[in-house]
């Protein structure tokens, strides 16, 4: 689009050599604005429009048809038909979510599982990131590479591999037998423990990388200064290192929490049939029950659960930043 504008502009100024400077400035102004438009266009096409479609479906009713929901906007019957359709729309699917405890439990369970996983990832990721940040400069690219390396294999394959490790006759149980730690196999597969292992394993890099980025920037003479002023190494960590790494902690936690809450593959493969997570519920509604409107309502509510706290958080952060200036 910007290019087209540029072409028309240069076409009109071709004969007017004297106004070349003015024209090029105008072009620059327009392309400048066009560049800003690109992310908005991206958001519009790939977020807002799909969101609108899903929201629209969530207001309709399920039918046996193709697609399996009552039409929302139908222009075939003219204005009256459109209005009739519009009247059909209802928030019934949302009240349905409230009525059935299944959904509420699934949401709560997802939040809990995602929360615990995030905390565990932080617990494991922080020392990792800290050690990486304090490693000799020549070693850091290698360590960074090792964190990123698992991404070179398909996520699905890596989760499948955990089945081989965790199942009753799997590698972990064999190893524990061999060292004599157990005499009956541990039942890890198809439990929440397996889900935690899967989520923490899969999303650990998302925790480590932002933490590493903030810790790596930190001036370690600050810790020496704190110790010089009477802090033990442990209290220096809590008073200096940790508060200064908070942006990394928050970024890492969000990067783990958000995908973990809607996670489907890991609970489906490792958690077995009785696991309750919203991603699985969503999948069931969509593919097993073919109830697209309810599935859409579930998705919209999930989005609200994620977006609202994030917006509050961002506003708080912006305000804190303004005060800091």
């Amino acid at each position: 689009m910007a290019q087209a504008v540029q072409e028309t502009l240069s076409g009109t100024t071709a004969g007017q050599v004297g106004e070349q400077g003015l024209a090029s400035r105008a072009i620059a102004a327009i392309t400048g604005r066009a560049v800003i438009l690109v992310p908005y266009l991206w958001l519009l096409i790939f977020f807002l429009v799909p969101f609108g479609i899903v929201f629209k479906i969530s207001l309709s009713q399920t039918t046996i048809a193709m697609p399996p929901y009552t039409p929302v906007f139908n222009w075939d019957d003219g204005i009256s038909g459109f209005l009739a359709n519009l009247r059909e729309l209802s928030f019934e699917n949302y009240t349905w979510l409230l009525d059935d405890a299944l959904y509420f439990n699934a949401y709560v369970s997802s939040v809990v599982i995602a929360g615990v996983s995030t905390f565990l990832a932080l617990l494991i990721g922080y020392p990792l990131a800290y050690a990486m940040a304090r490693a000799p400069g020549s070693l850091r690219p290698l360590l960074l590479m090792m964190v990123i390396l698992p991404f070179w294999t398909s996520f699905l394959i890596r989760v499948y591999a955990w089945i081989g490790i965790l199942k009753p006759e799997g590698l972990l149980n064999q190893f524990l037998f061999w060292i004599g730690a157990i005499d009956t196999p541990l039942q890890i597969m198809n439990t929440n423990t397996a889900i935690y292992i899967g989520i923490v394993y899969s999303y650990l890099p998302f925790m480590v990388l932002p933490l590493y980025a903030t810790l790596e920037k930190m001036d370690f003479s600050l810790i020496e200064a704190a110790q010089d002023l009477g802090c033990t190494p442990i209290s220096a960590f809590w008073k200096i290192t940790f508060p200064l790494s908070l942006p990394g902690v928050v970024a890492g936690s969000l990067l783990v929490f958000i995908p973990a809450i809607g996670e489907f593959v890991i609970p489906d493969l490792l958690g077995g049939s009785q696991t309750l997570m919203i991603g699985k519920t969503l999948w069931n509604e969509f593919f097993s029950n073919r109830d697209w409107p309810v599935a859409s309502a579930v998705a919209i509510v999930l989005l609200l659960i994620l977006v609202v706290p994030m917006m509050f958080f961002q506003r708080a952060q912006a305000r804190a930043q303004e005060q800091g200036r």
Binding site: D219, S221, L222, E224, A225, A226, Q227, D228, L229, G230, C231, T232, I240, P243, L244
Partner: peptide
């Protein structure tokens, strides 16, 4: 004797002021 128990204090070249 660790730094936090020594009766000496240091002014760092980078100042090492706590930014927060």
């Amino acid at each position: 004797i660790p730094p936090y128990r020594r009766p000496v204090n240091m002014m760092f070249q980078s100042y090492a002021l706590f930014p927060h």
